[in-house]
């Protein structure tokens, strides 16, 4: 029994050593404990500017562009997280379509406007629910779909934003 315990500990320790080493060398590795990712580091200028012609795929946009769309009332913000997370705080005017419970929101998805930008977001990288929802809407036929990849975490960093 004792040997099983020690062997198990050795396996766990070896897994940890190999795991952390390989992760450090892997370009697709995760940053331990930090919700950071590409979406945080990209500036608005890195993203494609919203255009009049519908894009070939959902665009990744940033905070500045979202504020500009909000000023023109040309946007529907969609929070892709669970309702309980949405209730705890969301972007102003955002509707909640939780990607993890899409089956219950088909009617709500069908009723979205086609003449406004549908901007999907989540908590922030590496949460990809916003991106997954955006592609779902795009595949449903919505042409003006965008992803706010930096998400709510990034939105909260602004001084002039409301939640």
């Amino acid at each position: 029994m004792k040997s099983i315990f020690f062997q198990s500990l050795i396996i766990i320790a070896a897994s940890a050593i190999l795991g952390f080493s390989a992760n450090a060398l892997n370009p697709n590795g995760v940053k331990i404990g930090a919700r950071t990712g590409p979406g945080d580091t990209k500036s608005d200028t890195t993203f494609s500017v919203l255009q009049d012609e519908p894009p070939d795929e959902p665009l990744v946009i940033g905070k500045t562009k979202i504020k500009s769309l909000m000023n023109n009332d040309n946007i529907v913000l969609i929070d892709a997280r669970l309702p309980e997370e949405y209730e705890q705080g969301h972007m102003p005017g955002a509707v909640n379509i939780p990607f993890e419970r899409l089956g219950r929101h088909i009617e709500q998805m069908d009723a979205l406007p086609k003449d406004k930008w549908l901007v999907c977001y989540c908590g922030g990288p590496p949460c990809d629910l916003g991106e997954l929802l955006a592609y779902e809407l795009f595949n449903m036929g919505y042409q003006y779909v965008a992803i706010y990849q930096a998400g709510l975490d990034d939105w909260k960093k602004s001084e002039d934003v409301e939640l």
């Binding site: 062997q7 396996i11 940890a16 795991g19 331990i32």
Partner: peptide, 27 residues
């Protein structure tokens, strides 16, 4: 993130030990 880094290696090591018929009870 810790689980995402460690668990896959634990799966591979346990799988390897089962395959090699070594430390079978612990793996």
């Amino acid at each position: 993130t810790v689980v995402a880094v460690i668990l896959p290696w634990m799966e591979v090591i346990c799988g390897g030990l089962l395959l090699a018929n070594r430390w079978v009870q612990s793996s």
